[in-house]
Computed example of a mutant assay.
Amino acid sequence: MSEYSPSRLLDKIIIRVPNGLRDRIKRVADFNNRSVNAELVVLLERTYPPETKIDEYLQDIAGIVGKLPAENRADAWRAVFDRLDALRNETI
Protein backbone atom coordinates (compact mmCIF):
# COMPACT_ATOMS: atom_id res chain seq x y z
CA MET A 1 0.00 0.00 0.00
CA SER A 2 1.30 3.41 -0.90
CA GLU A 3 2.18 5.82 1.90
CA TYR A 4 -0.20 8.23 0.11
CA SER A 5 -3.14 5.81 0.09
CA PRO A 6 -6.48 7.48 0.88
CA SER A 7 -7.12 4.80 3.51
CA ARG A 8 -4.34 6.32 5.60
CA LEU A 9 -6.60 9.32 6.16
CA LEU A 10 -9.41 7.23 7.67
CA ASP A 11 -10.02 6.91 11.41
CA LYS A 12 -8.21 3.98 13.01
CA ILE A 13 -9.15 1.77 15.94
CA ILE A 14 -6.89 -0.82 17.52
CA ILE A 15 -8.71 -3.53 19.45
CA ARG A 16 -7.66 -6.59 21.37
CA VAL A 17 -9.75 -9.70 20.87
CA PRO A 18 -9.82 -13.03 22.71
CA ASN A 19 -7.65 -15.84 21.36
CA GLY A 20 -9.26 -17.46 18.35
CA LEU A 21 -11.70 -14.65 17.55
CA ARG A 22 -9.51 -13.13 14.84
CA ASP A 23 -9.31 -16.54 13.15
CA ARG A 24 -13.10 -16.90 13.26
CA ILE A 25 -13.53 -13.43 11.77
CA LYS A 26 -10.94 -14.26 9.08
CA ARG A 27 -12.84 -17.41 8.07
CA VAL A 28 -16.09 -15.46 7.68
CA ALA A 29 -14.30 -12.64 5.86
CA ASP A 30 -12.74 -15.13 3.43
CA PHE A 31 -16.15 -16.71 2.83
CA ASN A 32 -17.57 -13.25 2.08
CA ASN A 33 -14.57 -12.34 -0.13
CA ARG A 34 -13.61 -9.48 2.19
CA SER A 35 -10.60 -8.53 4.24
CA VAL A 36 -10.84 -8.83 8.02
CA ASN A 37 -11.04 -5.04 8.19
CA ALA A 38 -13.86 -4.90 5.62
CA GLU A 39 -15.74 -7.65 7.46
CA LEU A 40 -15.48 -5.76 10.74
CA VAL A 41 -16.62 -2.53 9.08
CA VAL A 42 -19.72 -4.31 7.73
CA LEU A 43 -20.54 -5.65 11.20
CA LEU A 44 -19.96 -2.29 12.86
CA GLU A 45 -22.08 -0.46 10.27
CA ARG A 46 -24.95 -2.87 10.97
CA THR A 47 -24.67 -2.29 14.71
CA TYR A 48 -24.03 1.45 14.52
CA PRO A 49 -25.87 2.80 11.48
CA PRO A 50 -25.37 6.45 10.62
CA GLU A 51 -27.74 8.68 12.56
CA THR A 52 -29.27 9.95 9.36
CA LYS A 53 -30.56 6.44 8.64
CA ILE A 54 -32.11 6.24 12.07
CA ASP A 55 -33.67 9.67 11.58
CA GLU A 56 -35.08 8.56 8.22
CA TYR A 57 -36.59 5.43 9.80
CA LEU A 58 -38.13 7.47 12.61
CA GLN A 59 -39.63 9.89 10.09
CA ASP A 60 -41.08 6.95 8.15
CA ILE A 61 -42.52 5.48 11.34
CA ALA A 62 -44.00 8.84 12.35
CA GLY A 63 -45.60 9.13 8.92
CA ILE A 64 -47.13 5.67 9.17
CA VAL A 65 -48.39 6.19 12.72
CA GLY A 66 -49.77 9.59 11.73
CA LYS A 67 -51.97 7.92 9.11
CA LEU A 68 -53.56 5.59 11.67
CA PRO A 69 -56.91 6.43 13.21
CA ALA A 70 -56.40 8.65 16.26
CA GLU A 71 -57.62 5.94 18.64
CA ASN A 72 -54.85 3.55 17.46
CA ARG A 73 -51.90 5.95 17.55
CA ALA A 74 -51.07 5.61 21.26
CA ASP A 75 -50.90 1.81 20.97
CA ALA A 76 -48.76 2.07 17.83
CA TRP A 77 -46.31 4.45 19.52
CA ARG A 78 -46.17 2.18 22.57
CA ALA A 79 -45.26 -0.76 20.27
CA VAL A 80 -42.55 1.34 18.58
CA PHE A 81 -41.07 2.44 21.93
CA ASP A 82 -41.18 -1.12 23.30
CA ARG A 83 -39.33 -2.40 20.24
CA LEU A 84 -36.72 0.37 20.50
CA ASP A 85 -36.20 -0.50 24.17
CA ALA A 86 -35.76 -4.17 23.30
CA LEU A 87 -33.22 -3.34 20.59
CA ARG A 88 -31.34 -0.99 22.90
CA ASN A 89 -31.14 -3.73 25.54
CA GLU A 90 -29.80 -6.19 22.95
CA THR A 91 -26.91 -3.86 22.10
CA ILE A 92 -25.94 -2.97 25.67
Results as ranks from 00 to 15, higher is better:
Phe81Trp: 04
Leu87Lys: 08
Val41Leu: 07
Phe81His: 08
Ile25Met: 09
Arg8Gly: 12
Leu44Thr: 13
Ala79Glu: 14
Ile15Cys: 09
Asp23Ser: 12
Lys67Ile: 00
Ala74Val: 01
Glu71Leu: 09
Ala76Gly: 08
Phe31Gln: 13
Val65Pro: 00
Leu68Phe: 08
Arg73Met: 06
Leu87Cys: 08
Arg46Lys: 15
Thr52His: 14
Glu51Ser: 10
Ala29His: 07
Ala74Gln: 06
Asn19Leu: 14
Gly20Met: 03
Asp11Val: 14
Leu58Met: 15
Lys67Thr: 04
Arg34Trp: 01
Ala29Gln: 06
Arg24Ala: 09
Val80Asn: 02
Ile54Leu: 14
Asn33Ser: 04
Glu71Phe: 12
Met1Val: 03
Ile25Asn: 02
Asp60Glu: 15
Ile15Thr: 13
Gln59Ala: 11
Ala29Phe: 04
Ser2Glu: 14
Phe81Val: 12
Arg78Thr: 06
Glu56His: 13
Ala86Tyr: 05
Tyr57Arg: 08
Arg34Pro: 01
Pro49His: 03
Ile14Cys: 05
Ser35Thr: 15
Lys67Glu: 07
Leu43Ala: 13
Leu68Pro: 00
Ile92Arg: 15
Asn72Ser: 15
Leu9Arg: 12
Asn89Pro: 03
Leu58His: 06
Asn32Ile: 01
Glu39Pro: 05
Val17Asp: 01
Ser5Val: 01
Arg22Asp: 06
Ala62Asn: 15
Ala74Lys: 02
Ala74Met: 02
Leu10Ser: 11
Tyr57Lys: 08
Asp75Ser: 09
Glu56Leu: 14
Arg46Tyr: 14
Glu39Arg: 13
Ile15Met: 13
Glu51Trp: 05
Gln59Trp: 01
Gln59Leu: 10
Ser5Cys: 13
Leu40Thr: 04
Glu39Lys: 14
Arg8Ile: 03
Lys26Tyr: 05
Tyr48Arg: 11
Asp11Trp: 10
Lys67Met: 08
Val17Tyr: 00
Arg22Gln: 10
Asn89Gln: 14
Ala76Tyr: 02
Asp75Arg: 03
Arg83Cys: 12
Asp11Ile: 11
Ile54Trp: 04
Val28Ser: 12
Leu87Tyr: 04
Asp55Arg: 15
Arg34Asn: 10
Val17Cys: 07
Lys12Ser: 10
Asp60Asn: 07
Leu43Val: 10
Ala62Trp: 03
Ala86Pro: 00
Leu21Ser: 06
Pro6Phe: 12
Leu58Arg: 09
Arg8Asn: 08
Pro49Ser: 00
Ser2Ala: 13
Ile61Phe: 00
Arg73Gly: 03
Val65Arg: 00
Asp30Cys: 03
Met1Asn: 08
Arg16Pro: 02
Pro50Leu: 04
Arg24Tyr: 08
Arg73Lys: 15
